[in-house]
Amino acid sequence: MATTDSDQDTQSLTIVESVQDGLRSEMARDDDVIVLGEDVGQNGGVFRATDGLYEEYGEDRVVDTPLAESCIAGAAVGLAAHGMKPVPEMQFLGFSYPAFEQIINHAARLRARSCGQYSCQMVIRTPYGGGISAPEHHSESTETFFAHYPGLKVVVPSTPYDTKGLLTSAIRDPDPVVFLEPARLYRGFKDEVPEESYTVPIGDAAVRREGSDVSVFTWGSMTPPTLEAAENVEDEISVEVVELRSLSPLDTETIVESVKKTGRSAVVHEAPKSVGLGAEVTARIQEEALLYLEAPIERVTGFDVPFPLYSLEEFYLPEATRIEDGIRTVTEF
């Protein structure tokens, strides 16, 4: 459960504004929180996710770094080891790979390899995903790389409310968190977001729509089209939509409970199918609820190709029709 009162003051924010608001409130609460990355300062981030923070907290806490993802992440490891709570930004997920060494070999395992002496309380924020007509490398959805590695937590909001709550949890979490922001939803819609800070716990999925015939699991940018698909078929099929929110750790309990109720399930993600996180969800279901299954689990995903340049991205990305098709396949089995 989120730790907030329903009667407190709220503001109407988009996801990108909610990122700003979450950063702002944690920076106000804790002087150790600093933001660093390319263009995060005076420019306020290329998506404006850090807009206004430079003016409010100054260049020592909102730091425009040289263009070097590896050192942005690596310096954050050192900053965290000496007590700061850095929030480095990777400008796009597809540009985070120079930092892979630092994130995997160091941020993720500094606690383990120092036998608990050091930790890396840091949040690596990055926009991810397609559907924004962006140039090459700007539309990646490679969450699996990070969810695969022990020591990292990986979270993905899809609403303004969850964005601030999960970001707050991530910043306060004692371990490194990769915080994936669905670029396509950044300005998609507004939500009422409490002005006070609050947390949405890491590790809890959210049942977005209750249903009895089939469970569909998804996250991030695929949540709205999945809900749309569920609505489109509601006269014939009762679809439960579970938004995972936390990809590592996965909320196995909620996943399994839902499948035990419906007996059928599908996973929707925009990442390529093979070794996508849908495979892990599917494996957990067969481990915990095999005998409840009435049909093979369907995966509705991006294709196993490099993310195409934008003229073809609409054919690559699942949308409501394709998701409906998957729901029908698993229902009619």
Binding site: D304, L317, R322
Partner: peptide, 25 residues
């Protein structure tokens, strides 16, 4: 073979639903 399957899957989707619907995001 997996990619060929996926190519056929895309072909099936296009034939079944049409490009307009399939690209309506």
């Amino acid at each position: 073979p997996l990619l060929e399957d996926q190519r056929e899957q895309l072909e099936y989707l296009r034939e079944t639903y049409g490009d307009d619907e399939l690209t309506d995001h």
